[in-house]
Structure formats: structure tokens, C-alpha cells
Computed example of a mutant assay.
Amino acid sequence: MNDLLIFNHIELILAATTAGLFIIQLLYYLVTYARPLRQAKRRQMEAGQAKPAVSVIVYAKNESENLRKHLPALLNQNYPEYEIIVVNDGSTDESDEVLKTFKNEYDHLYHTYIPEDVKYLSRKKLALTVGIKAAKYDILLFTEANCEPMGKNWVSAMARNYTSKTSIILGFCAYGPHKGFFHKLVAYDNLMTGLQYISSALTGNPYTGNGRNLSYRKDLFFAHKGYYKSLSLHAGDDDLFINESATKDNTWVEYSPDSITEMAKIDRFSMWKEMKVSRAATQRYYKGWNLTFFRTESISYFLFFIAVITSIVLGILGNWLISILAGLLYTIRFSCKAAILHKSAKLLQQKPVTGWLFLLELILPLFNLYVRIYRIFRGKNDYTFRL
């Protein structure tokens, strides 16, 4: 029995490395990823009661079916003064007819059309700029035609925290509960990305946002010359603009149940892949250390996983206590992460994918690495999704 407590130098180094990586992983989840959970109740108590007039801007391109399905939820919000502006980006389907039908019933709906043959570096940025210029109110609230608020108080929840100092409100867009491993991967990626930018914003380090649920002032948009700094990129209308303009003092993050939107099902893997490639293309222009911080978490996980496997194999061949300790550390770390992500998903109105977590946490970082390499070799003019 005493021999089990005797370790050689290799076993000691491996045990120390595994334990060190275990602590790093635990800190990431207990401190960083659990932050939205810890602060949720306090944020609700601190929520404001403002009701400024709001212009909701909806981007749509060949989204006639989604407009039929999701636009009523936007048009029937419990809010005293708001308008809906749908920017129809050269749609060739029945979008225009759908919008005209809704317009006959709702006076606060407006829509504008970007001709299909208009040439511009980024059609989406042009479309959003047109919508912003058409907005009557200073408070702008953005979403897309394939998204829907999860309640009638979405506008109220997103706008209530505007003060004289607040210029940006970051929101969260959940991914719906769909069957199949691909949709579990999309949901996991969406949850992790959301927790990352929400947690960073809670510490006073906002670095990105999601255009499917995002608000800022019209004055801020023009003060930063709109999308001037990212005109050479097809994407970046949401994340890069927020990265450039968000500060500790001018940004609030809102993730109460009423504030959350939900996006429709992504039908094809190729579409999601192009969305990821598009985001990878803009991420290299981010300022700050946030991306490096979260990528370090993925690296430390893989190092920890390798250390655990090595320890188990070495323990089987030698001192089996090493195997037991490695397995115990992995179990504790996995259970901790699973519990935090499960509760966080429910907090953010998204169905948990806890049962798939073992595979998801292995596959997603590898896929993200593939996306970054793929983007590099695709060339400057071919890496973004033609939204």
C-alpha cells in the first residue's frame, strides 16, 4: 500500500501539470462562465424603468416565409412608442407583398427596398445604414427576419436601461430546440459565444455583440461614422461596430427572460460554416485581449485532456493511483462545467445540451481551428458569407 504513495519524477511532473490545468479550467467556469448566473438576480434588481421611443430595424433578404412567421411578434409588442423598419435587401421572393399586407394592418410598420442591382462593398451594411437613416428615433434596436422575441416585452426589456450615459445595450439570441447532432453543435456554440461576451461585458470589458439582438443610439452610429472603418469587409456590422464603440461606461448587457430573441433553424451545415468563416474574418480586427483569453481556455482544456489520458495510461502501466486521481479531476471538472452550462442555458432561454457535452467540447474547438485555417487559405475576396 505504501508503494502507491511513491511516485517517480515523470509521475510527479505529470500529476502537477494535470492539477495545474485542472485549476485553470475550474477557474474559467466557476469565475468567468458562471458570472452571468451569479449576477442575474442583482441585474434584475438594478434594471431601469425608462421607456424611450424605439426604432426596431429588421434586416431581410429573401425572407418572405420568416417575415410571415416572425413579424407579428415584433408588431405586437407591449410598448407605448416604437416603429418597425424592415429593410428589404433586394429580395426576389414575395417579401415585398408580405410587407405590404402587414402594412395595411399595422401603421407603425415601415419598409424600404434596396434594389438588387445596387453595387456596394457590403450590401448588408448599406441596407442597415438606410434603415438607420430612416429611423425616427434615437434608440435603435436590431434583429433579423429569421428571429423572433420570446415575449411581448422584448422592446421594453431592451430599452429600459437607457440613461444619459448609456449608448449600447447588448442582448442575447437563443437557438431553438432542434433534433440532430448538428443543431446541438450550433446551440452549444451559440451558448458559449453568448456567455463569453455577456461575461466580459459584466466585468466592464465589452468586446462584441450579436446583430440578432442588439441596441444602440443613432447618435453613436453617426459619431463613429457608421461602418466606415469596416467597409472593406462584407461582415462586421454588429461585432466590429460594437468592438470599436463599446466602453465600460456606455454599455449595458441585458439577458433577462423578456429581453431574449430566438433564431430560426439553420437548415444547412454549409450555411453555418460560412457564418463562422465570416465571423472569423472580422475577429482578427478586434481590439483588446478578450478573444485571446477565451481561446486560452480551449487550449488549456485540450492540454488537460491530453494530460488526463496520459496519466491514466501511465497509471495502468505503473502506479494506478495516478489513473484514479486523473479520472477524479476530469470528473469534477466535467461535472462543474456541465452544471454551469445547464443552468446558464436555462437562464438564457435555450434548451441545454448537457447529454452531448463530452463530444461537443471536443469537436467545437477543433472546428473553430479548422474555420480559422480555412479562412486564411480562401483569400480576401472569398471568405465572407454573402448575407
Rank of each mutant, 00 (worst) to 15 (best):
I6N: 08
N8R: 08
E11M: 04
L12S: 12
A15W: 05
A16K: 09
T18Q: 02
F22H: 02
F22K: 01
Q25C: 08
L30R: 04
V31K: 10
T32P: 06
T32E: 07
P36D: 05
R38G: 14
Q39Y: 12
A40C: 09
E46Y: 01
G48R: 09
A60S: 13
K61T: 10
A73E: 13
L75G: 02
N78A: 15
E83G: 11
I84N: 03
V86T: 03
V87P: 03
N88G: 11
E94A: 15
S95G: 10
E97K: 14
V98H: 00
T101W: 03
K103V: 06
H111G: 03
H111F: 15
D117P: 08
L121P: 03
L121R: 04
R123L: 11
R123E: 10
L128T: 01
G131I: 05
K136E: 14
L140T: 01
F142S: 00
E144H: 10
A145V: 07
E148S: 14
M150C: 04
W154Y: 14
Y162S: 06
A174V: 08
K179T: 13
K179S: 15
F181S: 09
F182T: 02
L195Y: 00
L195V: 00
P206K: 05
Y207K: 05
T208S: 13
N213H: 09
L214V: 05
Y216C: 07
K218M: 03
K218C: 09
D219A: 13
G226S: 08
K229P: 07
A235F: 14
G236I: 00
L240F: 02
L240R: 05
F241I: 04
N243Q: 11
E244C: 02
A246L: 09
N250C: 06
W252K: 06
V253W: 07
E254V: 08
Y255I: 02
D258P: 06
I266C: 08
E274N: 14
M275Q: 15
M275R: 14
S278W: 01
Y285G: 01
Y286P: 00
W289C: 13
L291N: 12
F293R: 05
T296Q: 12
E297H: 12
I299D: 06
I299M: 07
F304S: 01
I306T: 12
S311R: 00
L317C: 09
A326R: 09
G327C: 10
T331P: 01
R333V: 11
F334H: 06
L341R: 02
L341W: 02
S344G: 10
A345D: 05
L347G: 01
L348W: 07
G355Q: 03
W356C: 09
L357D: 07
F358W: 13
L360V: 04
I363W: 00
I363N: 02
L364G: 03
Y370K: 04
I373M: 08
F377T: 06
G379T: 01
